[in-house]
Structure formats: C-alpha cells, structure tokens
Amino acid sequence: MLMPHPATLRELVEEYEALIAREAESGAAKTNQRSQDLAYTLCVSTGTRDVRLALEKARRQLAAAQRPVAPMPVRHTGAGVVEAREAGETVSQ
C-alpha cells in the first residue's frame, strides 16, 4: 500500500481536527463539506473506511515517521557493485 508523505498526512489530520473542533464549538448539527472531504481523504490515505480508525492509523504512521531509521548495511564487492545484505538486491554503480 502506498503511504502518504508524513507532512501531507500531518496537514490532513490537523485541518480535520481543527474543523471538527470549530463545528463542535458552534454547535453545528451536521459537518460541512470540507470536513467530509478531509474525512474521506484520511480514510483513503490510510486504507480505512472509518474516520476514527483513519485518525488512529495516521497518528501511528506519523509517530513511526519521527523515529530514526537505521541505514541498511551494505557491502562493497568490488567492480562497482554494492550489495544490500538484508534485501538481497545488488545495485551497480
């Protein structure tokens, strides 16, 4: 599954939560079109069908994106070939 860029996902979550908070403060009985569009986009972006699940998954993805990722160990085999040890792929340089 494709994953949205963390910055894009963060913007979607923040805008959706701000709109929902404003709607709750104003006592709106129904959500406006923009919040519905954001809910749909969050669901599509996270592969869910419920906005609550989409928000949970988005938060997990954003938390994971902030963790540092260790570089993949590589081994130089000579003749301009670098071998990725864990992936088992070779890449010519």
Rank of each mutant, 00 (worst) to 15 (best):
residue 9 L to D: 02
residue 9 L to R: 07
residue 9 L to Q: 03
residue 10 R to S: 14
residue 10 R to E: 11
residue 10 R to F: 00
residue 11 E to T: 10
residue 11 E to R: 10
residue 11 E to N: 01
residue 11 E to A: 10
residue 12 L to D: 00
residue 12 L to N: 01
residue 12 L to F: 13
residue 12 L to V: 08
residue 13 V to L: 06
residue 13 V to D: 00
residue 13 V to M: 02
residue 14 E to R: 13
residue 14 E to C: 12
residue 14 E to D: 12
residue 14 E to L: 15
residue 15 E to F: 01
residue 16 Y to R: 07
residue 17 E to Y: 11
residue 17 E to K: 10
residue 17 E to S: 08
residue 17 E to F: 09
residue 18 A to P: 12
residue 18 A to M: 11
residue 19 L to M: 04
residue 19 L to N: 07
residue 19 L to V: 00
residue 21 A to H: 12
residue 22 R to S: 07
residue 24 A to N: 10
residue 24 A to C: 03
residue 24 A to W: 04
residue 24 A to D: 11
residue 25 E to N: 06
residue 25 E to Y: 12
residue 25 E to H: 10
residue 26 S to E: 15
residue 26 S to R: 15
residue 26 S to D: 15
residue 26 S to T: 04
residue 26 S to W: 05
residue 27 G to Y: 09
residue 27 G to A: 00
residue 28 A to R: 15
residue 28 A to F: 07
residue 28 A to C: 14
residue 28 A to W: 08
residue 30 K to P: 14
residue 31 T to W: 13
residue 32 N to P: 05
residue 33 Q to E: 14
residue 33 Q to G: 10
residue 33 Q to K: 15
residue 35 S to C: 01
residue 35 S to D: 01
residue 35 S to V: 13
residue 35 S to I: 12
residue 37 D to A: 09
residue 37 D to N: 15
residue 37 D to L: 14
residue 38 L to H: 00
residue 38 L to P: 05
residue 39 A to W: 14
residue 39 A to R: 03
residue 39 A to C: 08
residue 39 A to I: 04
residue 40 Y to W: 08
residue 40 Y to H: 04
residue 41 T to M: 11
residue 42 L to H: 01
residue 42 L to C: 05
residue 42 L to T: 02
residue 42 L to M: 05
residue 42 L to F: 00
residue 43 C to W: 01
residue 44 V to P: 02
residue 45 S to I: 00
residue 45 S to R: 04
residue 47 G to S: 01
residue 47 G to C: 04
residue 47 G to I: 13
residue 48 T to Y: 11
residue 49 R to L: 09
residue 49 R to V: 12
residue 49 R to P: 05
residue 49 R to D: 05
residue 49 R to E: 07
residue 50 D to I: 12
residue 50 D to Y: 02
residue 51 V to P: 04
residue 51 V to G: 02
residue 52 R to L: 06
residue 52 R to D: 06
residue 53 L to H: 11
residue 53 L to I: 05
residue 53 L to W: 14
residue 53 L to R: 07
residue 54 A to K: 02
residue 54 A to S: 03
residue 55 L to N: 01
residue 55 L to P: 00
residue 56 E to T: 13
residue 56 E to D: 06
residue 58 A to N: 08
residue 58 A to S: 06
residue 58 A to C: 02
residue 58 A to W: 02
residue 59 R to V: 14
residue 59 R to Y: 05
residue 59 R to H: 06
residue 59 R to P: 08
residue 59 R to D: 03
residue 60 R to D: 06
residue 60 R to Y: 03
residue 61 Q to E: 13
residue 62 L to K: 01
residue 62 L to E: 07
residue 62 L to V: 04
residue 64 A to I: 10
residue 64 A to P: 01
residue 64 A to G: 05
residue 64 A to N: 04
residue 66 Q to L: 15
residue 66 Q to Y: 02
residue 67 R to M: 13
residue 67 R to G: 04
residue 67 R to E: 11
residue 68 P to C: 08
residue 70 A to P: 12
residue 70 A to H: 09
residue 71 P to L: 04
residue 71 P to G: 09
residue 71 P to E: 08
residue 72 M to W: 09
residue 73 P to T: 07
residue 74 V to W: 00
residue 74 V to R: 13
residue 77 T to I: 15
residue 77 T to H: 04
residue 77 T to G: 07
residue 78 G to C: 12
residue 79 A to P: 03
residue 81 V to W: 13
residue 81 V to H: 11
residue 81 V to L: 09
residue 81 V to P: 08
residue 81 V to T: 14
residue 81 V to G: 12
residue 82 V to W: 12
residue 82 V to C: 05
residue 82 V to T: 15
residue 82 V to M: 06
residue 82 V to E: 11
residue 82 V to K: 10
residue 82 V to D: 15
